[in-house]
Amino acid sequence: MDFKDYYKTLGVSSDASADEIKKAFRKAARKYHPDINTGADAEAKFKDVNEAYEVLKDPERRAAYDQLGQEPPQAQGRYQPPPGWDSGYEFSSGGAEHDEAFSDFFETLFRRGAGPTRGMGAGTGQGSDVHGRIEITIEDAYRGAERKLSIRSPVVSPNGGVTMQDRTIAVRVPKGIAEGQHIRLAGKGSPGLGGGKAGDLFLEVAFAAHPVYRPEGKNLHMDLPITPWEAALGGHIIMPTPDGKVDLRIPKNARTGQKMRLKGKGLPGTPAGDIIATLKIVNPKVETDEARALFEKMAKEMPFDPRANLGGTKR
């Protein structure tokens, strides 16, 4: 377990006032909110910031945390809280309004022997839903896939306390799912209490970045490189798609930036999405005398001034 410097996380000094802490938290929460900040580490940062605030906003917890000292003891590099560190402090554990667990440091110090959290009162009741995220590839979405997923969620133990439990679940990713859609696994959320029904598990689907395709709903956008002669003469080309090779007709005198719609070749479904290919004319590197001769012939015999419309004076 690593020591967490909550003051450093929020960028405040250890004698910061409650107002300063609140202000720093709000600013950081806006900056790192995963719905706003698309950076790869924003989600982790946001979680850290929330964890820090969860401790520092509560005077009792903050006092107990301060008692631990600012610097971790260096022994073995692993942090162990001194025995009796929290004696004399009373704080209600849990309370975070988030589904997922905080760091081991937080869970050990502040959620140990926790009482029932909100919404998980004693008696009979339906288990709460659990929300998570799953990252899949575009190819998975075309074919459907199976993924193993580790889920960590709070579970009420027989004595009424809350412990974090890891579960591994095999998830079938349905064919044709689009980014942002949710997969529901009925009855795989938190277990119900006293014979109550278990909640559901909802997984929000995110696509891993793809070198070729940019998804937008059920459609996939891509750049399609073509040669200058394919562009000029038109004709059929064979292009790969996640669904297999397709034959595509390039119109005569095609331009860079022209969009071709491959109907029904996007993510499967009813209706299926399209692939929208933006043409990009790519010149070959001229390395042989023959190739150079061909271009020289074009230069000599084709009157073409692509700069005719730039305006300005000719001289």
Binding site: E146, K148, T168, I169, A170, V171, R172, V173, P174, G176, I177, Q181, H182, I183, R184, L185, A186, K188, F202
Partner: peptide, 12 residues
Amino acid sequence: MKVATLQSDIVE
């Protein structure tokens, strides 16, 4: 532990 593959549906 054997993990059974679960039936899952898209939330439409």
